[in-house]
């Protein structure tokens, strides 16, 4: 299941990455010469004020976007040279997504939502079923698999989304404000779950968040300010 890389090799390498957005004639720099490394089993939280480029950086790591300059290497593969189609294929194998608004497909049941990424693989129906059941058991929702998203609470929806993210056993989990739309109790449960994924299943996780409490659960936190990575502060910084 796991790719068996020695843990000393970085799983993700961001090298001198800059990103600009073009609006009309103006180009707006969002990321400026960012360098970052992630190792197997890492749990990184990405903090920073609105517009600092957190989500942009996350999108680059997840292969949703390309840098204007610099390189993003994941498992030694340069995402910048992959075609759109190859990138889609790459994402289906290597990245699991967790969104702020869960983004479950409303017309599909919990089970079918989790199964969705598996339909892109060559797994048989039976194998798919096993994987989905396992994933739903991990998030503790095996008993809700036939519910539609609108029949679930926000916290449950997010857990289904997490099951969907892990069902393909991806190299990297990216989470964009996973607790941003949840009450404190559900948020706590989600953070517990993510921490368990990291510690028990050695999942590599990158999480964008505003919430210092959420960031504190990560192994380390980095700050982005105006597109520049501010020195990696140690875990003490979260007390501010």
């Amino acid at each position: 299941m796991s790719s068996g890389l020695p843990s000393s090799d970085p799983i993700v390498e961001v090298i001198n990455v800059s990103k600009e957005f073009r609006r009309d004639q103006n180009s707006i720099p969002v990321l400026n010469n960012v360098n970052l490394q992630l190792f197997r089993g890492d749990y990184l939280s990405l903090m920073g004020p609105s517009g600092s480029g957190k989500t942009t950086l996350l999108n680059l790591l997840a292969g949703l976007d390309r840098p204007t300059s610099g390189k993003v290497l994941v498992c030694g593969e340069d995402l910048g040279v992959l075609s759109e189609g190859a990138l889609a294929k790459w994402r289906s194998r290597h990245v699991g997504f967790i969104f702020q608004l869960y983004n479950l497909i409303p017309v599909l049941t919990a089970f079918e939502n989790v199964e969705l990424p598996l339909t892109l693989t060559s797994l048989s129906r039976k194998e798919r079923k096993e994987h989905v059941t396992t994933a739903l058991e991990v998030v503790g929702l095996a008993d809700r698999m036939d519910h539609f998203p609108r029949q679930l609470s926000g916290g449950q929806e997010q857990r289904v989304a997490i099951a969907r993210a892990i069902v393909t056993d991806p190299t990297l989990l990216v989470a964009d404000e996973p607790t941003g739309d949840l009450d404190a109790k559900s948020a706590g449960e989600i953070l517990d779950l993510m921490q368990r994924l990291n510690s028990d299943f050695q999942k590599t996780i990158v999480m964008v968040t505003h919430d210092p409490n959420a960031a504190a659960r990560a192994k380390r936190t980095v700050h982005l300010e105006k597109g520049v990575l501010v020195a990696e502060p140690t875990s003490v910084s979260h007390s501010k």
């Binding site: 889609a88 990245v95 983004n103 497909i105 969705l116």
Partner: peptide, 16 residues
């Protein structure tokens, strides 16, 4: 629109 974006993020190809 969002739903389609999610599908593509998950790795659904253009053709699909």
């Amino acid at each position: 629109v969002t739903e389609i974006a999610v599908l593509k993020a998950i790795g659904f190809s253009r053709l699909r």
